[in-house]
C-alpha cells in the first residue's frame, strides 16, 4: 500500500484499445478530503481513466491504488469502497425515494438498521422527509440530483466519483449541489468530479486537464491561471485544448 495520505495514487496508468491509446501514462495523486476536478474535452480519455479508477476496467499497464486497493487487480474491492454518480440521472424513477435508498443501501451491504437511521438523517438534511414515499420520477430535476448524491454517499464511501453531475441543471441548483459537495468534503469524503462547466472547476481544490489521453496540467485553479497567464480556467482550457488532435 502506498502513502496513506493519498486516496488515489496512480503511476503511468495506460489503457490501449488495439492500437489506440485512450489513456497515455497518466500519473497523479488525490489527497483525502480533497475536491479534485478532472477536466478534459470529449474524447480526451476522461471516461476511460475514470472507469479504471472505479474498478470497471483494468489498465493495460501502469500501477496504483484507489482507496488502498490495487487498480490492476482489486477492481471488486475498489467498487465496494467508492461512491459513484453518473452524468445521467441514475436513480429509478418508478421507485419511491425510500425504495431507491433501500435498494442502493442493499447493494452496498448497508445493514438495514443502519440504513434506516442514515436514510432518515439524509431525508431530514435534504428537507425530503415529506417526499419519502414520492416516486422519484415526479421530483424536480434539482431535487433528483441532490437525492442521487445522497444515495451515492449512503454507504459512507471514502471517495465519490461524480461524472458530470450537474449536466443540464439550472445555475441555482448547481450552486446548491456544490454546497453539498463542500459539505461532504468538509466531513472528510474525497470528491473526484468531472465537469463541462469551467466555472465549476474554480470551486475545486485542484484540477487536472486531460488532452489526448495525457494529463497536460495539474495544480490549484489559482496557480494554473497564473502559470498560463489566463483570466479564467475556461481560457486556460482553451489554450491547452488548442493543441489537441482528437476530440471535438
Amino acid at each position: 500500500m502506498s502513502n496513506n495520505d493519498y486516496i488515489i495514487d496512480v503511476k503511468d496508468l495506460t489503457k490501449k484499445f488495439g492500437t489506440f491509446t485512450a489513456v497515455d501514462h497518466i500519473t497523479f495523486s488525490v489527497k483525502r478530503g480533497e475536491i479534485f476536478g478532472f477536466l478534459g474535452a470529449n474524447g480526451a480519455g476522461k471516461t476511460t481513466a475514470m472507469r479504471m479508477l472505479c474498478g470497471l476496467s483494468y489498465p493495460t499497464s501502469g500501477s496504483g491504488t484507489v482507496a488502498g486497493f490495487d487498480v490492476t487487480k482489486e477492481g471488486e474491492k475498489i467498487k465496494r469502497h467508492i461512491g459513484y454518480m453518473s452524468q445521467r440521472f441514475s436513480l429509478y424513477e418508478d421507485l419511491t425515494v425510500m425504495e431507491n435508498m433501500e435498494l442502493f443501501g442493499g447493494i452496498y451491504g448497508v445493514k438495514s438498521k443502519d440504513l434506516k437511521e442514515r436514510a432518515s438523517d439524509l431525508l431530514e438534511k435534504l428537507n425530503f422527509v415529506e417526499e419519502r414515499d414520492t416516486m422519484v420520477g415526479s421530483l424536480p430535476l434539482g431535487w433528483k440530483q441532490k437525492l442521487a448524491f445522497a444515495v451515492a454517499t449512503l454507504h459512507r464511501p471514502e471517495i465519490v466519483f461524480l461524472d458530470e453531475p450537474t449536466g443540464g441543471v439550472d445555475p441555482i441548483t448547481r450552486r446548491q449541489f456544490w454546497e453539498m459537495i463542500y459539505q461532504a468534503s468538509s466531513e472528510g469524503t474525497t470528491i473526484f468530479v468531472t465537469t463541462h462547466y469551467m466555472d465549476e472547476a474554480e470551486y475545486c481544490h485542484r484540477v487536472s486537464m486531460m488532452v489526448d489521453g495525457q494529463i497536460k496540467a495539474l495544480d490549484t485553479p489559482a496557480n494554473l491561471k497564473k502559470q498560463y497567464n489566463a483570466a479564467s480556467i475556461d481560457e486556460m482550457f482553451r489554450i491547452l485544448a488548442r493543441g489537441a488532435k482528437r476530440g471535438d
Binding site: L56, S86, S90, Y92
Partner: peptide
C-alpha cells in the same frame, strides 16, 4: 438507456 446500468456496474453487485 437511462444510465442506471452504469451505476449498477460500478457497484459491487
Amino acid at each position: 438507456e437511462t444510465g442506471t446500468m452504469d451505476v449498477l456496474l460500478v457497484s459491487p453487485v
